[in-house]
Design a protein around this nucleic acid. Structure first.
Lengths: 191, 191, 191, 191
DNA sequence: GATGAATGAGTTTTCATTCAT
DNA sequence: TATGAATGAAAACTCATTCAT
């Protein structure tokens, strides 16, 4: 079953690798097809265009990330624990899916305005998860009544900075660093 | 005086606009030249290539930003005041130079790996300013002995998130938001 | 069968005509493609670059020329007969393939040093045929012990001059002239 | 006196070097001007165009060659002596003016048909000198009544081959080789 | 006369996309 | 459905030539 999906998956995986290595514009559909072990025409059977393939690939990655993240966060209790887990899971997931990850974390204005906007919206879904944690924390009285929007931005921004930095250095944040980060923020958030 | 510099400047200003609007690849040298009011060949008199023009333009923007920032920070006393001023000046500057700003704040992996690396290095100079503030604060005992690296990443990451968000919403952080942000972090940093 | 080869052939034939008429630099890939009845991109499917196409075309011509020449010379007996045939076949062949021929006979320093060198090497193969005839003649005692190198140069130089002159005047050497030429040299070569 | 001519000369010398090294198309007017120690605009004060400069440079070289050759040949008596001297002087002159020489000896169809034709005509002047020697030899009875045209072509072709070969190998024909060459032909020319 | 900054026409080359098989 | 040969639009870049100083 889902043979069609399998081939699309195959192509998206190949695409992630090539896009990550070459950047969007230098990547060629031909190479992606070759790495995926299919003909160039086949790529167009499953995706409208190079742009479409790219978007689909990112959406796929984000969706998986969100699913994993949501599942892991559900296991944790309390704002602090959830946030620590957030940092930890982010790092872990992105480490294992580095090529797809770059597209999720990094901006890409180089691809044109509309693309950027779409990316921004896509990234919103992610910060949504954090906002929920914060809002719940405030409601439950675990946090003092801060602006959830500001805190979300601060937290995701900080997390983003850690990950992006790890892309270059290879030092992905571990549980200890995650704890340090969260505690840094947490002190300013307590009632 | 400085006629030569003027023409290069003229071209870089035009380039910033076109690059910001179209993205690197969709932007054409021809349009940049037209907007700058010079011939296509003239662009190549002053810049080796489209890439070179792009890099020069960013470097120009970063340098100006650094200069302004350093000057403003020098007027402030104490870590807290400096950090607040940092957020405020970032927002203010980037608001007024939005087109150049995007390149400073946002990544551009779409342009290829080596390009990204160069951008990363360029952006390092910026975080250097923050690290200095933090390190000095620790040394002077204003802050507890935290890892300056971590704090720098958290702070710049948060600031980055605020600015990038402002690019879409148009709501640039004001002094109040800057204070909120800094105080959020500051509580976790006090001795 | 040999569909692939056919298309490359098709393009090379068109190229020979355009290159001969316009010269290397004035010739455009676009016109070559048009004359070959294919799209511009197709030329690049079969040849790396304009340079590559040019080289391939010449190599093709030289190879054909060498094949024909070798076959014809094999039918003749004795140095004198072979040399006469050489002149005759050269003239005949080059008359029928004038556009390709110019590249084989004439130098082309205008295309850059490395190109020239390659052309020189290519042309060496041709003089090799003559040298063999001379060397064999000396060994068999048909000729007095002359320097085969010198004689080869004299003979090919003379032949070259005849052909090149024919390009302008249209008077390609016939059997009579071939005989005159060879006899002129032959008297100085007899034991 | 002749200041104007001096500057033109200066430019032509520089041009010869650059053209010889780079080929016609790769050579830039800018580099020629630089090597000549003048401004780019100055080149256009003395020559209509790059083409014009090139032609003028060749004509200059040919004219000098013809003058030298004519003078040297006038000192010799008899066909054989004159022809030997011809080879010798050619070699010697071209060795000393190699960069200009290539243009005189080698063809340049790469520059377009009309250019080639002009070059052919220019080279005619040279063979004219040889034809005169042959014709006079025939008239005076030193040679049997051969076709002067054929002999001229053979001789100049052979000489050409020797020189062109020397361009690559660096072994310019000396008096001994000149004698060998002429005697080779001479035996077929005696009454 | 001399200069060199400015120009833009003209070319090669790339690659996403199509479509006949 | 899968393919990959063919296509041509699009863009960077070069350099001969001009002309204001």
């Amino acid at each position: 079953m889902k043979m069609k999906n399998d081939k699309a998956q195959q192509i998206m995986v190949a695409a992630a690798g090539v896009f990550a290595r070459e950047g969007f514009h230098k990547a060629t559909v031909e190479e992606i097809a070759r790495k995926a072990g299919v003909g160039k025409g086949t790529v167009y059977e499953y995706f409208e265009s190079k742009d479409d393939l790219f978007r689909a690939m990112i959406r796929e990655g984000v969706q998986l990330f969100l699913k994993v993240l949501a599942a892991e966060l559900a296991c944790e209790d309390g704002v602090r624990a959830k946030l620590i887990r957030f940092v930890e899971v982010s790092a872990c997931f992105l480490k294992e899916h580095e090529s797809q990850a770059r597209f999720i974390m990094e901006d890409a204005w180089g691809l044109g305005k509309s693309f950027c906007q779409w990316m921004a919206e896509t990234r919103q879904e992610l910060s949504g998860l954090v906002r929920e944690i914060i809002e719940e924390g405030v409601k439950k009285g675990e946090l003092r009544p801060v602006d959830p929007d500001l805190v979300t931005k601060v937290f995701t921004g900080a997390n983003h900075a850690l990950i992006v930095s790890a892309f270059s250095t290879g030092e992905y944040p571990d549980r200890e660093m995650a704890t340090s980060l969260v505690d840094l923020l947490f002190q300013g958030l307590q009632p």
